[in-house]
Design a binder for these strands. Structure first.
Length: 271
DNA sequence: ACCCAGGAAATTC
DNA sequence: GAATTTCATGGG
């Protein structure tokens, strides 16, 4: 059982799944990527213009089309963004196969709470241990992301095995506010950006940057522009302090090209 | 030993 | 209110 999408352009699995927007995909020796999305364990491959989701049910075709954002013409987005600044054009050309995934909102929330003052390698490890310890087992060594209800019942000490330190109480507060309905993540889709952001920031441990990440990666609000230490440096050094608002409705996509480009070109920022 | 990591809360000025 | 310190953990 597998799903095949034909004539796929502007998608490179390594660029998309290892560019810091998600933390649960692992590359195999054969070039495939193992991941779990919405409780479905699959292996994704690209072969020419084909995208193959091995292990997926045909009924989930729309889910995977949605997840990889296959209905948006990224060539057109890149053409537009590239007119705005020469470094933008260079960053898009550097990793032209990046797409912004539609991740589960709750997974994005918890993942980016964990991301604060942390590095990507360790974030991935913490998320993995979170799933192994508290997610439903759905296969050999495969686990769903934990539910809000499950995490809401835990104490910070219960989370000791994931070794996320001071973030334990933030994870629990986020889970509790989702579980008890204080925050309805799906309802945030209908809200204007700033209002949805203010809702998310009611969670202890969710500030400006984490909220921007949840809106962009979990709720697909593409105007979001998370400013982390890399992006602040990039905007200052590579874009001469340009206002991100210039990137408009696709700012989040611009951000991802620039973030990935900057992370893989540290020499552009001294020493 | 130090400094940093896809920050934000707590404390101090 | 704005600036500084602290918060676990792991790697360089």
């Amino acid at each position: 059982m597998s799903i095949v999408f034909e004539n796929i352009a502007d998608l490179d699995l390594r660029q998309t799944l290892d560019c810091g927007q998600c933390f649960r995909w692992r590359e195999r020796d054969d070039g495939g990527f193992e991941g779990v999305v919405r409780g479905r364990a699959v292996t994704a491959y690209m072969d020419g213009g084909l995208l193959i989701i091995d292990g997926a049910e045909e009924d989930d075709r729309d889910l995977w089309r949605d997840y990889f954002d296959l209905d948006l013409d990224y060539s057109e987005v890149k053409r537009y963004l590239s007119t705005l600044h020469p470094v933008m054009a260079e960053a898009a050309e550097f990793a032209p196969g990046i797409r912004i995934l539609r991740q589960e909102p709750f997974e994005a929330l918890i993942s980016f709470i964990i991301s604060q003052n942390n590095n990507i390698k360790r974030i991935s490890g913490i998320v993995e241990r979170l799933c192994e310890n508290f997610g439903e087992q759905i296969g050999e060594g495969r686990f769903a992301f934990p539910t809000a209800d499950r995490l809401a019942q835990l104490t910070p000490d219960d989370l000791a095995p994931i070794r996320a330190g001071f973030r334990h109480r933030y994870i629990i507060d986020g889970a509790q506010k989702v579980a008890d309905g204080t925050i309805d993540l799906e309802a945030l889709r209908a809200l204007p950006y700033d209002e949805a952001k203010a809702e998310l920031m009611k969670i202890t441990g969710v500030g400006v940057k984490v909220a921007d990440c949840v809106l962009l990666y979990g709720l697909h609000k593409l105007e979001g522009f998370p400013l982390d230490v890399w992006m602040k440096r990039a905007m200052a050094v590579l874009f001469d302090g340009m206002d991100p608002a210039v990137f408009g409705e696709y700012a989040g996509i611009a951000q991802q090209y620039i973030f990935h480009y900057s992370r893989l070109h540290p020499e552009k920022f001294g020493t």
